[in-house]
């Protein structure tokens, strides 16, 4: 209903004289704070950030420490392989004798690396393509969008597996590199985001403030970066948050299937290593999966909350 929306809007109009400015971002933050679910998501992500930053403090043992064998974790001097959760190892140990909990903690950094790294690449490609297609239109739009559609119809996951397999075969030296996985995920995940950003640019481009700016004599560069980009930034933030979750999930799946980077310590890799012993030691597979789920859920809740908080349709 327009009239009550208009009224809600008048609420902010008559602030006391001299009151300090309230930017759209400040308003979005206020809205976000009222959304309990989003704050829960933010909390989960925050806990994971702390975990990644202070992993040595949060973990019980040093990384790659074989319980009962390595000098740093002697315990009773007996190899603790596939031991069920107990006092010394709350989430059990895996086949090698690593403490599952500590290894999960050390895997957090890798999860962020994958999520943020792949998303950075994805959003870079998506923003460039989305802005260019939406702003310049015409043949440029036609070309870029057809390209995007080609990428969209390719079965992304299969392609990813094939690509990883081929690179592992062709360049065995790279196989240990988690960056390759990050690059491949990032390079194939952008089409959806590019289309959404283009759509938003098309919408914002029609607003009169763009025409007003052009009419003043502003250059294309100025219109793109001073007006269009800040006005689609909220969509980019939401897409990026959700993309982080999607990238982590993809890496976990790829690794679990055995196509990941073998030398890396990711949750997916941990699940893969324990998968053969799931009958004797289910904890080695289950708990990394639980943490993947928790982190993905955290980012998804935050992303959905951000979407509600930043949605311009709620503004006017």
């Amino acid at each position: 209903m327009t009239s009550d929306r208009k009224m809600a809007q008048t609420t902010l109009e008559q602030r006391p004289a001299g009151g300090h400015r309230v930017s759209q971002w400040a308003l979005a933050w206020r809205r976000l704070k009222k959304n309990k679910v989003a704050i829960a998501g933010l909390g989960i992500v925050g806990i994971f950030i702390v975990m990644a930053a202070f992993d040595r403090l949060v973990a019980l043992y040093p990384p790659k420490c074989i319980l009962g064998v390595s000098p740093a974790c002697q315990l009773d001097g007996r190899l603790h392989s596939n031991s069920p959760p107990g006092l010394a190892y709350p989430l059990g140990t895996d086949i090698t004798g690593y403490d599952v909990y500590s290894e999960i903690v050390y895997g957090t950094r890798a999860a962020f690396l994958i999520g943020v790294g792949a998303t950075g690449l994805t959003m870079l490609i998506a923003v460039v393509i989305g802005l260019a297609a939406g702003y310049f239109g015409g043949w440029m739009d036609n070309l870029l969008m057809r390209l995007t559609e080609v990428f969209l119809v390719i079965p992304f996951f299969l392609l990813l597996l094939v690509f990883l397999q081929v690179t592992i075969k062709l360049a065995p030296a790279n196989t240990g590199s988690i960056w390759l996985v990050v690059f491949v995920i990032g390079a194939f995940s952008w089409p959806g985001a590019a289309r959404i950003i283009r759509g938003e640019v098309l919408r914002v481009r029609e607003f009169e403030f763009i025409a007003a700016s052009r009419q003043i004599g502003a250059s294309s560069y100025r219109i793109l970066f001073r007006h269009l980009f800040p006005n689609v930034l909220h969509i980019i933030i939401v897409l990026a948050t959700l993309q982080i979750a999607a990238s982590i999930l993809t890496e976990a799946a790829v690794s679990f299937l055995g196509f990941g980077a073998p030398g890396s310590n990711t949750w997916g890799q941990q699940m893969y290593n324990s998968a053969n012993y799931v009958e004797q030691a289910w904890w080695g597979t289950l708990f990394p999966a639980v943490f993947v789920t928790l982190m993905v859920m955290g980012f998804n809740l935050l992303g959905n909350g951000l979407r509600d908080a930043l949605d311009p349709r709620l503004r006017e």
Binding site: E208, F209, S219, P230, P312
Partner: peptide
């Protein structure tokens, strides 16, 4: 040019000062 709709002809992400100074910058 003065546009019909003052609700859509001002960039919501800019302060009034930025909006009025944009022509000066250009």
């Amino acid at each position: 040019y003065i546009f019909q709709n003052p609700y859509s002809s001002l960039d919501p992400r800019m302060t009034v000062a930025d909006i009025i100074m944009e022509p000066l910058e250009v």
